Simulated scan of single mutants.
Amino acid sequence: MTSSLVRPGSAAVVAARPMLAVVEVTAHRPHAPRYHAYVQTLNERIVEDAIALGWDARRLAAGDLGAAELLRVTDGASAIVIAGGEDLDPVTWGGRRGYEGEGRHDEEADAGQIALVRRALVRSTPLLGICRGHQVIDVALGGTLVPHLDDADGAHRGSGAVESLMVDHDVEFAPGSRVAAAFGSTTARVRSAHHQAVDRVGEGLEVVARTADGGVEAVEHQTAPITGVQWHPEDRGADRTQLPLLLSLLAAQAAEVSRAA
């Protein structure tokens, strides 16, 4: 953790901010500069909003660090966000390569992020997964994915220019879920771009949000402070209140874990 700066001449000691590890796939995509630039705007937004809420937010690239180093540098994190990005290698969930719409895979990122989820479960570290991160949670806990969805007129977009893939649609929250409590509502208008989805739900997870066609849009662990959302609250075109609500949920969970320690 790092302490906030104290103004010159001030005798006040400012408490250290809790560390939030924002874990992305990679910091380098020379093969896909347009996609990479768009992903940067998403991850930058997570950090901006987290800092505004009082976190010491640090971006970490799982695929560049490798699993062992990622676990080391996140060891003291108060909470974790696993951000969006490339498809998980289907080997991680018992699928096969060669599926429609298959993109590049980053096996190092897969291994590191899956290990983070499993450690978070053991330690009760608050963790939020967004899009790919939501799918990582499911796979880490033994779930599977639908390898490809492509509905040009609906909530799933499998191909096209990255800027055109985001779709606004409604989700319905399960009454009594943590995410419903954070939003203060049983419904929300969200912004998504994905061509894969949770299929079989991982051990200990509950589905707490769905689309009108039944697609899984959010999961929560029954006992650990782990939440995954399929949509992109960090997109610049999304409702500006949604990401702070989810980050505040993480903060509340981190405070609860600290009190129990």
Rank of each mutant, 00 (worst) to 15 (best):
L145E: 04
R72D: 15
S3N: 14
V117P: 13
V73Q: 11
S192T: 01
R34T: 14
P225W: 07
S177R: 14
E206Y: 08
A11K: 12
G63F: 05
R236N: 09
G143E: 06
E108M: 10
G95W: 04
L127N: 10
A193M: 09
A111E: 12
E220I: 07
D239E: 09
T92P: 03
P175Q: 08
A62M: 08
E107L: 10
G63S: 03
V22D: 05
E234Q: 13
V22T: 11
V47S: 00
W55P: 01
R240T: 13
A152I: 10
D151M: 07
L128A: 02
R7P: 12
L53P: 15
A218S: 13
G54M: 07
V81Y: 08
H28R: 15
V6W: 08
H221D: 15
V14M: 14
R118D: 04
L88H: 07
D150H: 13
A83L: 05
R118G: 03
R210C: 11
E69I: 05
R157K: 13
H195L: 04
A11F: 05
T92D: 03
G85M: 04
G214E: 03
E86V: 05
G204H: 03
G9N: 06
V22P: 02
A260T: 15
M19S: 11
H169T: 03
E220Q: 14
Q230V: 00
L145P: 02
V190T: 06
A238V: 08
R17G: 01
R34L: 11
T41L: 12
R157A: 08
L5H: 11
V14P: 00
A209I: 04
A260L: 14
N43P: 10
R178W: 02
I80F: 12
A252W: 07
V22K: 01
D168P: 08
A111W: 00
G154L: 05
E107Q: 14
A11G: 15
H28M: 09
A37T: 11
D106R: 06
A120F: 05
D106S: 10
Q242F: 04
G66V: 09
L42W: 06
S177F: 14
V25S: 09
L5K: 11
P30V: 00
G94P: 05
V201S: 11
A218P: 10
L116H: 02
A12I: 09
Y38T: 06
G85V: 05
R236Y: 00
R119V: 04
G184S: 04
G214Q: 09
E107V: 14
E220N: 12
A188G: 09
E108N: 13
E234P: 15
P244H: 04
A15M: 10
P126Y: 05
E220H: 13
R17L: 14
G214D: 09
Y35R: 11
H169F: 04
R119L: 05
P244E: 00
I114A: 06
